[in-house]
């Protein structure tokens, strides 16, 4: 089960908790309006009034980073949610019933995982078009094979165990066994996969928005901010640094969490 005393888990929980609190506050309140331009305060270096400085339009970078991170977080949440839901259903059914459908789906699965995830995401964006909702959809589709594969493997393993056979003998309906009896038992494995996928989602979203194929203006995004910051690297290096560090913090927290949950030992 989950080891709450694990050092990685604790550090990850602290970092993620801190990030989540900041993001939650950021949903309702930021020190400045993220889109408020101020011609008198362009390219200010970090100071007391603007902890991360201001950008080329005089906008407060801290407020923009908080808002962008919130948006990135929601995109990751949505896409992992889609992947998890579909993956659990597909993996659960194929793991339980097996047969030729299982064979075919697993072959397709293997081929899909042969593409590097960024490449698949780019193909899907080419197909669906860019924009916030399409990113969530594309990344969600991307995660289905990962979750389906893990759930399928675990379900197939649990199926042979005594408690499942007992439940069958007692006449419990199969969907109930699958989702009420087996699912809680594979939760730890599932959780660490969720954390890893979450990281992949953050990285993929940031990468694609950086490339200009992801979130489109006016929606905020850390990746696009990094792309904009690159143009002012010499005059305002803090712009790129603070934006990038926000991504690092998000990824680091969830990486440690997944490790604490045992992702490393199982993968």
């Amino acid at each position: 089960m989950i080891d709450f005393k694990d050092r990685s888990f604790r550090t990850g929980a602290v970092i993620t908790g801190f990030v989540l609190i900041v993001l939650l506050i950021g949903l309702f309140w930021t020190p400045y309006d993220p889109n408020d331009m101020n011609a008198a305060e362009k390219m200010l270096s970090p100071c007391l009034r603007h902890p991360f400085g201001t950008d080329n339009f005089g906008r407060d970078i801290f407020s923009r980073v908080v808002q962008g991170a919130g948006s990135t977080f929601l995109i990751a949440l949505g896409s992992v949610g889609i992947g998890l839901l579909a993956g659990v259903i597909v993996g659960g059914l194929t793991g339980w019933y097996g047969g030729w459908v299982d064979e075919v789906l697993m072959r397709v699965n293997d081929s899909l995982t042969a593409f590097p995830s960024l490449l698949t995401a780019l193909v899907l964006i080419a197909v669906f078009g860019s924009g916030r909702h399409n990113i969530i959809l594309a990344l969600g589709v991307l995660f289905i094979p990962t979750f389906a594969r893990i759930v399928r493997m675990e379900v197939a393993r649990q199926k042979a165990l005594d408690y499942v056979r007992n439940a069958l003998l007692m006449g419990v309906k199969e969907p109930r066994i699958l989702f009420v009896h087996i699912l809680p038992n594979i939760l730890p494995v599932l959780l660490s996969t969720v954390a890893i996928s979450f990281n992949n989602a953050v990285l993929a979203e940031a990468s694609m928005s950086y490339l200009g194929l992801g979130v489109q203006p006016p929606d905020p995004s850390l990746g696009r901010m990094l792309g904009e910051a690159q143009a002012f690297l010499l005059r305002a290096p803090w712009y790129a640094v603070s934006t990038g560090l926000a991504i690092v913090l998000l990824v680091l927290g969830f990486g440690l969490l997944s490790e604490g949950l045992g992702g490393e030992r199982r993968a």
Binding site: N199, L203, A206, S207, Y210, L226, A229, Q230, L233, L234, P237, A240, V241, G244, I247, V248, V251, L252, G255, L256
Partner: peptide, 21 residues
């Protein structure tokens, strides 16, 4: 552990700044 979490394109921007500019 921290370096593992740095996205390569962010690192690239930092390297451009430090070694290039």
């Amino acid at each position: 552990q921290i370096l593992m979490s740095v996205p390569s394109f962010f690192l690239g921007i930092l390297l451009t700044w430090l070694f290039g500019l």
